[in-house]
Design a protein around this nucleic acid. Structure first.
Ligand SMILES: [Mn+2]
Ligand SMILES: [Mn+2]
Ligand SMILES: [Mn+2]
Ligand SMILES: [Mn+2]
Lengths: 233, 233
DNA sequence: TAAAATATTTAGATTAATCGAAATAATAAT
DNA sequence: ATTATTATTTCGATTAATCTAAATATTTTA
């Protein structure tokens, strides 16, 4: 029985520690998927560590070819690093689906647990979990779940407020997550996956009539329309 | 967003690292629930580390009052340590139930993943998971799951070979877990939870006739009878 | 373009977890 | 009761991850 921490698993991508995985994920996000370099201080703030610690860690990740780095120039995620980051992000989002759909977690309780679960090393576990959840494509916040190869099906998601009358779509997320807003959504019967159609828009204030799942039609305020995200289904 | 490892949670029992949790669990098991002291070398073998590392770790656990320790005298788990160990064991076994019941894991794939999952820090997660699984009392190997307070409902489990003719019971586990044995059980339709009745025993070799779920009756070899564990239902 | 401000890296420590080798204690054998 | 064997601990190192303070580089501003 192997009790201790670092289980060697795959070796094409070297095994990373939890901490390294967290850094990579942060670099991926702060760089907007690798589009721009990330500053030491920005990373330090995101990771809540001292800039000196970030310098050390960046060197380590650079030796492992997870990032490209020239000092004082900021850090860029590498291809290998991106794949690894997307793996962790995939696992993070799959767990979130599980926590919400199966364990009825509130949206604000998700991250603390998903931050831990995302680091479990077991390809089999994630295959099975994915299957158990019906191969979800989006997490409960409407963020897309990368596939096993790190492919992101970036489906656009737009607030109702910005879509023309007549548009139908699936709710894939919300902006913000105040308890009262979520309670409201719950009350009117809207959740992730709900199909909505925009049937009218009041010009004078921007409030919108929507049909929920083809059944009932309600009017939502411009604020609500701004905060419900639809994907063009 | 808190990315990094040691999340401070409850503080009556101090937060332990994964490694410390694994040591405590090993001490608990090797001491047979605290009945006898555990030798340094035995622990080193169980943990697959050098005895020198064990000496170090024992001192650490002793400072945290998780064990009682006098050098050269072996280590005894403390009350606090026992509670902590039972928490980890609870979480380990709950995850195993999940992996088997929900994700269709094979028995031999369980430990590697459960060894990781057992260290997730989130009381809410385990409450919900427990509920989701219907508050199971035994794990897939038939081992009892301690409750939140560390109480173990020790139900006896006996091999078929040691039970009298006429006894009925639930399969709560098996001894060993060779792939071929598990395949055999699968073939004849026996798994955890299956109800068996002992209908006859051949005196000359100890093979046994059993009725499976009140449906079909088969004959099992003395070896098989030795390795299927029943609980008096 | 030189000084000031800001960003980043280096230097030097610390803590957890590990190891091998050497020292020491406990136990078993003669 | 010595001696030999075995078990355990101590010693001194190593690696990952962190920190503070000091040094250095870059960028901004005057
Ligand atoms: Mn350094
Ligand atoms: Mn994380
Ligand atoms: Mn030491
Ligand atoms: Mn473990």
């Amino acid at each position: 029985m192997r009790y201790n921490q670092p289980l060697p698993i795959a070796t094409n991508t070297p095994m990373l520690s939890f901490v390294e995985e967290n850094y990579l994920k942060a670099i991926y996000h702060l760089s907007e998927a690798g589009k721009r370099p990330v500053n030491t201080n920005a990373l330090a703030e995101e990771m809540k560590t001292a800039p000196a610690s970030v310098s050390d860690m960046i060197k380590r990740l650079s030796e492992k070819r997870m990032v490209d780095y020239q000092k004082y120039r900021g850090v860029n995620i590498s291809e290998k690093g991106k794949i690894k980051a997307l793996h962790v992000i995939r696992q993070h989002r799959i767990w979130k689906v599980f926590l919400v759909e199966k364990l009825n977690f509130q949206w604000d309780q998700l991250d603390e647990v998903a931050e831990q679960l995302e680091h479990i090393k077991s390809p089999l576990l994630f295959q099975r979990l994915d299957e158990f959840l019906g191969f979800p494509k989006f997490d409960p916040h409407g963020d897309p779940i990368p596939d096993e190869n790190g492919q992101l099906i970036e489906k656009r998601k737009d607030p109702i407020a910005q879509l023309p009358v007549g548009t139908a779509g699936i709710v894939v997320g919300v902006n913000g997550s105040s308890a009262s807003f979520l309670k409201y959504l719950d009350k009117v019967g809207i959740s992730i996956g709900t199909r909505l159609q925009i049937v009218d828009r009041m010009e004078f204030d921007g409030s919108v009539d929507i049909t929920i799942d083809g059944k009932k039609t309600i009017t939502i305020s411009p604020t609500v329309a701004e905060n419900i995200l639809l994907s063009e289904a």
